[in-house]
């Protein structure tokens, strides 16, 4: 099972085992990882599951879609490695993924 690590803004780490086929957002919700509100339930339409993907994982995670980009772009503090975690499907390839939770989401 792919392991995903979420690092809170204060440095606290939570590692969870995620089922392939779920999303990085749902894996956080299922394991009560704080900092991801996910108001819309995974529809790419509220931007409350914002994560900063660890630089070394950027290539594997890939770029946001046009729809995701339009949500990210509303946030003046978005970064080049910003993604909405509801739009990152969990695959075996992402075993070991590290994402950071941004300060502005608290």
């Amino acid at each position: 099972m792919p392991k995903i690590t979420y690092i809170q803004f204060d440095g606290t780490e939570s590692s969870v085992d995620a089922n392939p086929g779920t999303t990085v957002m749902n894996a956080a919700l299922d394991n009560l990882v704080p900092g991801i509100d996910a108001d819309c339930g995974g529809e790419c339409s509220c931007a409350t599951c914002h994560v900063l993907v660890d630089e070394s994982w950027m290539a594997k995670v890939g770029q946001p879609s046009v729809a995701e980009e339009s949500m990210l772009d509303l946030n003046p503090d978005r970064q080049p490695n910003s993604r909405l975690s509801c739009q990152i499907p969990v695959t075996e390839d992402l075993d070991g993924l590290v994402v950071n939770l941004p300060e502005f989401q608290y």
């Binding site: 339009s70 772009d73 509303l74 946030n75 003046p76 503090d77 300060e103 502005f104 989401q105 608290y106």
Partner: peptide, 14 residues
């Protein structure tokens, strides 16, 4: 997007 970005920081959680 351009105009919303200007005022949105005032209501960010932080």
């Amino acid at each position: 997007d351009d105009q919303r970005r200007v005022v949105s920081p005032v209501v960010q959680p932080i």
